[in-house]
Amino acid sequence: MSLIKMSHVKKVYKTGVTAIYDLDLAIEKGEFVFIIGSTGCGKSTLIKMLYREEKPTSGTILVGGLNVGKIKNSKVYKLRRKLGVVFQDYKLLQKSTVYENVAFALEVLGTPKSEIYQKVVKVLDLVGLKHKANNYPNQLSGGEQQRVAIARAIVNGPKLLICDEPTGNLDEITSMEIMKVLEAINQMGTTIIMVTHDTDIVNKLKKKTILLDSGRILKIFEKGTYNHENIKNSK
């Protein structure tokens, strides 16, 4: 069974803008998938529906067997505990240390202290930030902050990691560092969906790539290369 299955999904915002038109998509366990497309084509909308930040107007979305569109507001946390989300702007608590930021995701679940410590140290090690555990976000570089955000997203071992332009604010070298971390996480079995504008990344990593255009899937490249020729041809 696919980890994610979307069928006939449509999203119309309250303002009347249709962001997604009748979209079908399946993503298997363990895949690493890029979602690309021009600004405003509905990339963020698509993944927001996966973590139930937005509800589909029609159609069904199954994530790990949960019918996401049907989850009540008060039960959204059950879905969120099964996946991790990473954003362009990191979304860290500025007044908490690196350790506290990551531990936070476990604390809200009522995890015992000793278990929190073990898991946080392990995941900080994975993203290479163990030595900065006691620093505050404003004492870190952008790439380091993003690694903290990734650590927080995966600390409770989610099956799925959703990233919305995680390298959007970072330079080339730092971006590639982040991609290495994400690849390592993917290698350990976590499915990753990543929205990006960065053609270099898509071309280098050669992962499955979904090209969106005005709310529709224009093409799926199995080993994605992203260039204008490619896009023109598919049109």
Partner: peptide, 17 residues
């Protein structure tokens, strides 16, 4: 607001928040 947003994101239930 951001703190609450993050709490929701990492899977805190409404009561937890």
């Amino acid at each position: 607001k951001r703190e609450i947003e993050i709490m929701r994101l990492v899977g805190a239930s409404n009561l937890n928040i």
